[in-house]
Design a protein around this nucleic acid. Structure first.
Lengths: 171, 171
DNA sequence: TATTGTTATACTCTATAACTATA
DNA sequence: TATAGTTATAGAGTATAACAATA
């Protein structure tokens, strides 16, 4: 959070091809978070490669939202996930092609769809959520329980500060 | 970290267009981190829009690395930032076009470049680092000092677990 | 044979505008 | 006029393969 460490030249650190000073970067919390998300996304890609939810986390999170809140519209989901309407069209197209999600016309509000899981979607989502939980727990396994609780509380506080939107409950 | 909250129907929560249950997502630390990085990237775009480092953080981080470690090669930087060689070519092309960075041929190892700042680059990098620090501090301002220290320590622990590469020191 | 930088290609994600149909 | 969904387009990020120059 402050003063960069000196380059430690001359010490016993002269083994490898000259160590790099990355402290200007690691002093920034935002840099830390970005690098970690890169790694966590790689872990996601590995865990979900053999599933129809490969290639970006948007398909999984959309499916989980529909499972927990049947009847959501595409725009509703976009607001939660910070995705615009064109992005949601593509995701729902994919999930529909995979026969996991169904677009039902809203009876009164005929502009929007009510998104619901198909029977296959309901059956699959349990498996997907188990994969998600395993990959998430595995990734954060290097942390102690106390650190995980702290991290969760801190991230939640930041989320509420920047996303206090219409969202809702949970977390 | 566990048990989803019930939908709390019937309580005083029936005001807005029916609250959404996002707890399946917020139970995942990885989801929290991804959403926060989305927000932090938006903050970056705003802060650096009027500079030649707009459009992605790679240009700033590359510049800061060269400033702290003159003579780095493109591949060196790519290893630190988890970017492949084609990505680094594009970034250095941009920084060179902006007259911030210079490709110098390495005298002995004539395959690689020694990347150094131009006079203009050295003058600008101080300003850019000040902008970076301000935007970073502003973004994490909702946290107490203790929380920031905790977050930094936790993120560092995870980084070391997943990126124990050849990196170096600092942080 | 391996490595640095380069080019080309492709696929994803993101952002914007414009169109339709509904309200 | 405003909103939900759609389409088209362009930009940035990422991943791959292949190439030239060098080691």
């Amino acid at each position: 959070m402050s003063a960069h460490q000196p380059k430690a030249r001359g010490s016993r650190a002269e083994a490898k091809p000259a160590l790099l000073d990355i402290s200007p970067l690691t002093d920034l919390l935002s840099f830390h978070m970005r690098m970690l998300v890169l790694a966590v996304n790689r872990a996601y890609d590995e865990a979900f490669a053999p599933t129809p939810l490969a290639g970006g986390t948007g398909k999984l999170t959309t499916l989980m939202l529909i499972a927990a809140n049947p009847g959501m519209s595409q725009s509703d989901i976009g607001r939660v996930l910070s995705k615009d309407r064109p992005a949601m069209v593509r995701i729902i197209d994919h999930l529909e092609a995979e026969k996991l999600v169904l677009r039902k016309r809203h009876p009164e509000e005929r502009r929007r769809y009510e998104l619901v899981l198909t029977a296959q979607g309901r059956a699959s989502v349990k498996r997907f959520m188990a994969i998600a939980q395993t990959y998430d727990e595995t990734f954060f396994a290097p942390l102690s329980d106390r650190e995980k609780t702290n991290l969760s509380r801190i991230l939640r506080k930041l989320r509420l500060a920047y996303q206090s939107d219409t969202l809702g409950m949970g977390g």
